[in-house]
Each structure stands twice: as C-alpha cells, then as structure tokens.
C-alpha cells in the first residue's frame, strides 16, 4: 500500500511538472492553457493524497471546470489564438521565466522544511461539517473578507460592462444627431 502511495505521489508530481513545462514552453496559447489545466489537475490529485478530498474536488470544480473555461473563452476568440500566430520568445525571456518560480519555491520550501512541524504524522480526512464549522467559527472574518473581495470584483465587472454600453449608446446618439 505504501509503495502504491509513493508511485501515485510521483505520478502526480510528474503531472504537475510536465503541465508547468507545457504552460511555459508551448508556442500556442491554447496549448499553454491545456498545460495549466494539467497542472491544476495534478494539484487536485495531490490534495487527495494529502487526505483533503473536499479541497481536491473543489479544485477540479472551480479551477479546472470553471476558471480555465472562462480563460479559454477569453483567449480562444482573440485573432492571434485563432490563427496560431504567436511571436517566438527570446531565450533570455525563457531564462527569466524559469528563474521566477525559484524564489517563492525557495522561501516557502525553507519555511516548510525548517520552521513548520506537522501537527499529526498521518493526515486525517476532516469532514465537510468540520470545515464548515471552522469557516464560520474561528475563521469567520477571513472567510467573509474573501467573499467581500469576490463581491467587489463582480461589481467592478458589471460597472465596466455598463460603462462600455453607455459609451456605445452615446456614440450612437451623436451619430444620429449628426445626421
């Protein structure tokens, strides 16, 4: 059983890493997105391995099922992606892109290995009820703040949409007056 777990872990890490490489090195933007989805999917699998199936499922539901589809919607209908026209990057850019993730990984990795000790050696599956009580009990303030951020983002999107519509209407009115 333990060996099986190790094989699954390595498999998932491979999925994450390969997905990341596809995201960075693919010269087609939709292929990059597919790589990103692969990475997110591998991340979901890692959550399952860490005995957090609810978070894993949510990762699949929100990031793979919804967010990446919205990103797809945004990029697939731009001209450049449609015809596969993308400029090739310089090798210095590749170098910088590869350098960028090393900093957060190093900092986080240092703290994870050196500072934080695990509270329980074997992870336990916590039920959705426990999670809910945590969110609405001790963590109620951050939880509500996150929802506030989402609300503001949504309102901003709506206002931007109306702004565009208003400008279009004004232009139409002007065109009519000029006639």
């Amino acid at each position: 059983m333990e060996r099986l777990g190790l094989i699954t872990l390595i498999l998932h890490i491979l999925i994450v890493v390969v997905g990341g490489f596809i995201t960075v090195f693919a010269n087609n933007i939709v292929r990059s997105l597919t790589g990103l989805i692969l990475t997110l999917f591998g991340g979901a699998g890692l959550y399952f391995l860490m005995a957090a199936p609810f978070i894993g499922i949510m990762q699949v539901l929100i990031y793979v099922g919804a967010v990446s589809v919205i990103i797809f919607f945004a990029i697939a209908f731009t001209r450049r992606a449609q015809f596969g026209l993308t400029e090739s990057r310089k090798s210095s850019q590749y170098f910088l892109v590869c350098l960028l993730p090393i900093l957060p990984v190093a900092v986080l990795g240092y703290f994870l290995v050196k500072e934080i000790t695990t509270s329980i050696p074997v992870p336990q599956i916590s039920s959705v009820q426990t999670l809910g009580k945590f969110f609405l009990g001790p963590y109620v303030l951050p939880f509500e703040l996150i929802s506030l951020v989402l609300l503001i983002a949504m309102m901003g999107a709506v206002i931007l949409g109306f702004e565009k519509k208003r400008i279009q209407m004004e232009q139409l009115d002007q065109a009519k007056q000029e006639e």
Partner: peptide, 25 residues
C-alpha cells in the same frame, strides 16, 4: 465517499472543457 454529490458535479463539469477544446482545435 462523503462528498459524492460534489464529486459527480466536479467531474461532469469537465465536459465543457472537452467541448471547447474540440471546437477550437
């Protein structure tokens, strides 16, 4: 599984992704 309902929903939502990939490519 304790979260069977969300599991079904999460995996059925992957279908959209397949359709738009197929449609785009």
């Amino acid at each position: 599984i304790n979260i069977g309902l969300i599991m079904v929903l999460a995996f059925s939502s992957l279908n959209v992704l397949a359709l738009c990939l197929g449609g785009w490519s």
